[in-house]
Nucleic acid binder design. Structure first.
Lengths: 155, 155
DNA sequence: TATTGTTATACTCTATAACTATA
DNA sequence: TATAGTTATAGAGTATAACAATA
């Protein structure tokens, strides 16, 4: 029971990097038939749930820098999965919407991702999955709090 | 309670990417004073626990491609934290060992990483942390099993 | 002035092919 | 012929500065 990386396994970050690598590999393989990557699937899902949202809002939601999101939106638009509609109230901005094809692809891809998720979580109880979601959220928020502290020292 | 990315939060992969990003940012900030990054710290820790192991073994343990590990070992050697000793039994190979400085830096960095880990896991019970470690391991192994299936179809 | 989307760019991380020297 | 370490390189992913159009 003594693995060569035992001294690192005690750290949540190390265990998470390894688990995340496994998930990412399986997820990207899962999404490839749909012409999607992790991040393009995420963008498509958020646009599907919030039709008309703008690029800067989407970038904010997904914690992606605006310049990088441009390329992601380009990619989805080129594949005819979404459209950029000029916003009526602000002519600088675009309202992002799914096309009919985008809706169809999202629905199918979402099913495949759900299967992938079940595959990766095989052997876990419902309570385990719940605890996992909860602890991941806690870690994310602990990180955010620390970042704020660093960025705004004793505001 | 309805966030813009609710439709993605249900997936372990999405929640994990966000949590991992938070950990990585805090960990890299934690390691910077030691001149280390996540991966160089990991390599240093494994060498510290397994003095004399070889580059290919280290690459295997950390799931890093051999060519990429060369640069990591270069970096640690340039910083006088480790040495490459020609193996006595195989003149192609190197035995990796910590220097005295490497041992000192590893011990201090390890303490800082333990603090970082406690910070990121603040608010979690001991049982939560245990479940987290367990479920992350399960996910990693589920991924490995799937990869093997794909690489070696019905061996 | 500030903001939206954009371009250009650079830096890290990761993956693959091919080389060398040994085995 | 196979393996250990290496080189070169290319592809993602990510971050910053600066610009045009608009607010």
């Amino acid at each position: 029971m003594t693995a060569p990386d035992d001294s690192l396994r005690v750290f949540a970050g190390y265990a998470m990097k390894r688990a995340f690598n496994a998930i990412q590999a399986d997820l990207n393989a899962t999404l490839q038939p749909f012409g999607l990557r992790m991040v393009t699937f995420s963008a498509l899902a958020v646009i599907g749930a919030h039709s008309g949202l703008r690029q800067s809002a989407l970038a904010d939601v997904l914690a992606i820098e605006r310049p990088n999101l441009v390329l992601i939106v380009d990619e989805l638009e080129r594949a005819d999965l979404i459209v950029r509609d000029r916003a009526t109230d602000d002519r600088r901005a675009y309202d992002l919407r799914l096309t009919l094809l985008g809706r169809r692809v999202l629905d199918k891809a979402r099913g495949a991702v759900a299967d992938h998720d079940a595959r990766m979580c095989a052997g876990m109880t419902a309570q385990d999955k719940d605890t996992l979601a909860q602890t991941l959220r806690t870690i994310e928020l602990n990180g955010r709090r620390d970042n704020d502290r660093r960025t705004l020292p004793r505001a």
